[in-house]
Structures are given as C-alpha cells and as structure tokens.
Amino acid sequence: MTTPLMIEARGVEKWYPNGFQALRGADLSVHQGEVVVIMGPSGSGKSTFIRTFNGLEDFQKGSIVVDGITLSDDVRQIDAIRREVGMVFQQFNLFPHLTVLENVALAPVLVRRRPKAEVQQQALELLDRVGIQHQAHKYPGQLSGGQQQRVAIARSLCMEPRIMLFDEPTSALDPEMVQEVLAVMQELARDGMTMVVVSHEVRFARQVASRVALMADGQVVEVAPPEQFFTAPGHERSRQFLSQIG
C-alpha cells in the first residue's frame, strides 16, 4: 500500500481492573481511505479494541499510533487524537438537553474555537447531508433511533475528523432503520473517509469494506478483503464464525 498509515496497533493487551484480559495482543493497520469492518463473536474484544484507538479504554501492553500520534497516558496527546478521530456509538449518546443543531455545533465552537454562526451553517449542511434538515431545532428524544444515529454521525463529521470509528452503529436500531444509517456510512466511505466499523452487517461489509478483520479471544485472527473473507476464509475461527451467522 502506498497511502499513509492512519492507525497502527501492535500487540495491544488490556486487562480490566477485575483481572479479566480483554485484549491478548491485537494487531491492526488501517491506511488512509480504507474501510475496515471488524467482525467477531460477542466477547471477542471488538468494542474494547476500537475504543482504545481514541483513548476511551486504556491498555497495558503494546502500542497504538493514530494519525502519527502515539497514544500514551499524556492527556494532551489523547485530546489531540480525539480532535482528529470521530466516534459513533451503539447508543448514539446524543446530548438530550441540547437541540439537534446544538449537538452538532457544540464541539467545533468549544474545541476548535470557530465562530458560532459559521459552525451552525456547516452543521445545517451536514444535517442536510444525512437527511435531518427539518429537525434541527428538535430535541434528540423527539427523533427515531435511526434519525438520532444520523445526527450522531453529523455531530462527529462537524469536527472534520480524519478518521471515523463506528462501534456497532446499527445494533440498537429497529430493523427498518438500519438501512438509512448504513446508507449514510456508505456515502461517507465513497467520499474517501478512513473508517473502522465494528458491525455484524454482512451485506455492508461485503459492499463497502476494503478489508474485513475477524476478532476472537482478544486477538485479530484474520484480515482479508471481503470477497476472500466471506468465500474462502483462511482461519478456522473465521469459518466457525461465518457458519454461525449463516
């Protein structure tokens, strides 16, 4: 690959305070413009792994370099990484006391110190792009789950991140709302955003992923292009997983 490396995780190991080891030497490299979909059985450490990339989870061994910045305990480094890395959560985590527009415009004004009027203009454009243009002045509680998740994506995009992390973005949605969120993500991928997506959506992985990573027992056991991963998986755990999800 000739494009620059955006995320490089090497031998990441993490123990929870109760002694449980969630990550046992997980490796992953993500290049600029790539969409990497992480799959795997529940409890395999997918969410924990993706949350280490922006410092939401700490880790005890190994190294993670994000956009050229090495993750360490230094709070300023973590803040610097978080400014460049957007994150979308399973539970949306919109701020319920702020309107949709205020949700999207909050961080650029506070963190990037940009003029409020300019940010709100950009926020409205982003809401338009994810199809929420008419709900800007409503509160998150008045929107459907799919709409909330699209607002959450717009909120991350308003910080103009270089990388987007998605932690099971459609798992908390009713089935009929999954597609509207995946469509937004697909468009984002087409525009060249670097994305890491923890997901169970096989169709999305087949159509959008550059590569699919399979995690099991706190390790990345296989990384392969989707056509190869879904038709001729190289690892025993991948075959097992694919047979289980049918």
Partner: peptide, 14 residues
C-alpha cells in the same frame, strides 16, 4: 449514562 461523558470526550472536549 456513562456514554454522555464518553461522547463529549470523543468529540475532543476536555
């Protein structure tokens, strides 16, 4: 919910 603080920190707020 703990997700509120996580979302704020993920957006780069200190």
């Amino acid at each position: 919910p703990p997700g509120q603080l996580e979302a704020a920190r993920s957006l780069g707020l200190n």
